[in-house]
Design a protein around this nucleic acid. Structure first.
Lengths: 304, 304
DNA sequence: CAGGCTCCATAAGTTTTTCTTGGGCAATCC
DNA sequence: GGATTGCCCAAGAAAAACTTATGGAGCCTG
């Protein structure tokens, strides 16, 4: 930023220009008129320009004085407004929540809607981004993270240790399913495979799931449908494009609504739980605590 | 004018917040770090609120500190600019443009870039604020206003009568959309509702849009996402957080780039046009006229 | 026209604010 | 664990802001 003119003198200028009198300005500022006179003189010296014409015992703004008055009044008005807001305690805190992309729509959005219903005036910003993030720098109040290890210095609340189970659309199972052979007898092209990519812990595979059933089948991903996001796997299943190993937290609403059916009660746990992280200084704020409570209370009941 | 906070302390706050360090701020201000520390402390005492969290030998802005920083920087920047102008003796005319918040980023910025390409030495200030404003007092050369009624004494040029149409991210529609049922069959939580608040003319609602299609659906805003700015609705849609009724002037770039898709050709007009207002004495200035010409020429072609 | 009143300017002195210095404390890094 | 870095505090120094008394100029009234 450029060098600032003397701010006390700027204040005196604004009041003098507005009132057209150093005496009136002095009264408003609570100082002597000589003090105002000196401050104006200081400012004129600093600028190298006259701001007022003195005619005997009267003052008139010069053109230069006229030119800078509006912007000066505005800037000082803005600063006064800041002060007013702070003194009135009128700063309404905005809750900034950060979630992984895959959780934003299917899991967090409904929960935020519930929170907003309970607290209609709560201001919430939602950021969708993957770990790791800088909570402090980004002024994030609560980060939901896959795993409990990214933010060791922060306050942590464990939300849910999710698992995956085979789900598909009801009509899909009527058309392709077989109660006698179950999933074992299905064609390879009907499986939806979720691959989080090389930078992330591995999503449980169909081979993992069959192993958990005591079987040995291992459907080949190159013969099925492959998606890179858990939420996309759920959506594909809902659309009747196949059978997915869907994360329970994301599939729950669809299961309850009957848009998806679970094909087995066997599930495989994810490698890590989902946890909420908060900067310690913010963890006891009423809005943060309310959201955490809601997230904990609405976590799905998992088996095992 | 309300009582001002201590201006010297405000100056120290701005530099400390910007640099994130009392030591760096001291260097910039040409004083000792202890002086900066004391000024910040003075200001916190005056406000009755903490502006920085001190952690050992580090500082972090508090929410309150974050909240007031942008406006503080702006106000001090304005004062510095006044000083600069006076020292340079350059009463060089600056084009001051004022726009509503929602138009600043998505609509005006690209147009100003085009103007600066044609006139590289043009000095432009852009202010973002909502109606009504005092153009004379704030020395604004051109105000873009929603509606044609705020400034009856000023020269007016009508720019565009915008409309809204349903938009969302392409991947969002692939995941949630259904060509057979279209928007009618969508879950209520997927709609993004724009509410300008009680002080402004109403933004067209989803119910308005469905009525324009000859339907009767009326998505309930309490079940969807609510945003208070048209530009935020566009951004939320682009991020895949739902389907928004997006203003064409703001959505145009995203639509052309494929980041958003229009889900229907049906649109609903806003209640008022956007107009440009100028004090009569400034309307024929070359820079003002050039900007108005550009804005008129690049207005989107609207349907019906 | 002269005198009184009002208001800005100046100089000298006083008061308040701002800044410096030295030492203490805590976080971070090697 | 030691060294380094950076914020905090107290006491004192320096600078800025203010006051008081007096002078000069414009305006109004008798």
């Amino acid at each position: 930023m450029e060098k600032l003119p003397p701010l006390n003198a700027i204040k005196a200028f604004e009041v003098a220009a507005r009132s057209g009198s150093f005496t009136l300005a002095a009264s408003e500022l609570g100082v002597s008129s000589a003090a105002v006179s000196q401050q104006i003189r200081n400012l004129e010296t600093w600028f190298g320009k006259q701001l007022f014409v003195r005619t005997g015992n009267r003052i008139t703004l010069t053109d230069a004085g006229h030119a800078i008055y509006p912007q000066t009044a505005r800037a000082l008005g803005d600063i006064a407004a800041i002060g007013q807001r702070m003194l009135e305690g009128g700063l309404r805190t905005r809750l900034v929540v950060s979630v992984p992309f895959s959780l934003a729509e299917l899991w967090l959005a409904p929960r935020l809607a519930a929170l907003l219903e309970a607290f209609p005036h709560m201001a919430i910003d939602v950021r969708a981004e993957d770990d790791p993030i800088d909570l402090v720098r980004q002024n994030v109040d609560l980060r939901i993270s896959y795993g409990d290890y990214h933010y060791p210095a922060l306050r942590m609340v464990r939300l849910v240790h999710d698992d995956v189970l085979p789900v598909c659309a009801p009509e899909f199972w009527q058309r392709h399913g077989n109660s006698d052979t179950g999933l074992v007898g299905l064609h390879e092209s009907l499986f939806i495979h979720t691959n989080w990519g090389p930078n992330y812990a591995s999503h449980p595979s169909w081979a993992d799931w069959f192993a958990a059933c005591g079987g040995s089948r291992s459907p080949d991903p190159s013969h099925g449908r492959r998606v890179g996001l858990s939420s996309l796997a759920i959506a594909s299943a809902r659309l009747g494009l196949g059978i997915a190993l869907g994360q329970r937290v994301m599939a729950q609403a669809d299961l309850e609504a009957g848009r998806l059916i679970a094909l087995s009660s066997v599930s495989v746990r994810l490698g890590h739980p989902y946890c909420a992280f908060m900067p310690p200084a913010k963890a006891d704020r009423a809005d943060v605590a309310a959201l955490v409570r809601l997230l904990v209370n609405t976590a799905p009941t998992t088996r095992g």
